[in-house]
């Protein structure tokens, strides 16, 4: 099956012709399949945010192209706008873009811009709110009366209410407590399972990505450094460290165990896998 989103030789240069010229993206070839959960990792300034803003046509490539369903998203204005609804983008700290008087109206902003009728907008708002766990009562509140975590949920609901085919999230758990971020990740996974959409998540948190992603791409200095399953990526711990990234904590523990002479799998990246690997080593069976 053809990928839903694809970039071909995508390059982006900021400030062309000035002393501040900066190559943010270099020759990115990336394809995103329908229904997959893709993790994007890279240290600050590696071009992650620039990349995702190309995927829904907010930034225009300096050279190269971005294809949605096989068609260039810049082929005409109407198509670019249509793609913005099909590729939902949740920015970093999305709670700062809330502006309406009620949470309901804010979530309805996207669907209304799509030109849907009132009943459909209503259905989508309630469905999106349900996914992120915003109660019926909270929908009529002002977004500014919600707690920080709920405000972020409302903002995410505002994008998933557009029911996009691809949902892109830039650091959705930044600044939240462990419980709050775990819940948001679960909300996103639930929505993905129900919608069958592709999800692209940009993050710094290796544990988050290890839990969720089917596939991971690593960006370094504006170029695609690695592309593979979490297992493949996290088994290259040394290379990751070299480009200033980390591996999940449990992987670190296992690497150290190996150094100490214990023959365990070094590419373990979730706590569950770790428990299994240890039990196998002990000769016992998982309980």
């Amino acid at each position: 099956m053809a990928p839903i989103l694809q970039t071909k030789n995508l390059c982006h240069v900021y400030g062309e012709g000035t002393p501040f010229r900066h190559e943010a993206l270099r020759h990115i070839d990336l394809s995103i399949d329908r229904g997959e959960f893709l993790g994007v990792i890279g240290h600050t300034g590696s071009g992650k945010s620039t990349l995702i803003q190309h995927l829904n046509g907010l930034l225009k490539p300096t050279s190269g192209e971005v294809l949605f369903d096989g068609e260039d998203i810049w082929k005409d204005k109407a198509f670019t706008r249509a793609v913005r609804f099909k590729v939902g983008l949740v920015f970093q700290y999305p709670e700062y873009q809330l502006f309406e008087e009620t949470v309901y109206a804010d979530i309805a902003f996207g669907p209304k811009n799509m030109g849907l009728d009132k009943d459909e907008v209503d259905r989508r708002v309630r469905r999106a709110a349900g996914f992120v766990g915003i109660s019926e009562k909270s929908l009529q509140k002002s977004p500014f009366d919600l707690s920080g975590g709920n405000r972020r949920r409302a903002a995410i609901a505002g994008v998933i209410a557009m029911e996009p085919d691809v949902l892109i999230l830039d650091e959705p758990t930044a600044g939240l407590d462990p419980l709050g971020s775990e819940q948001i990740l679960q909300n996103i996974r639930d929505w993905q399972a129900a919608q069958g959409a592709a999800v692209v998540m940009v993050t710094h948190d290796m544990s988050d990505i290890a839990e969720c992603a089917d596939r991971i791409v690593v960006l370094s200095d504006g170029a695609l450094a690695m592309d593979g399953t979490p297992r493949e990526i996290f088994s290259r711990a040394q290379e990751l460290t070299q480009i200033g990234l980390d591996v999940p904590q449990v992987t670190k523990v296992f690497l150290r165990l190996r150094e100490l002479g214990l023959d365990v799998d070094p590419a373990v990246y979730t706590v569950q896998q770790a428990a299994q690997a240890l039990l196998k080593r002990k000769g016992g069976s998982p309980c």
Binding site: L58, R84, L89, F91, Y96, Q97, F109, M114
Partner: peptide, 12 residues
């Protein structure tokens, strides 16, 4: 940033 975020939700 805000302009981009609202554009992503289809603001025109």
């Amino acid at each position: 940033n805000i302009i981009s975020a609202q554009k992503a939700r289809g603001a025109d």
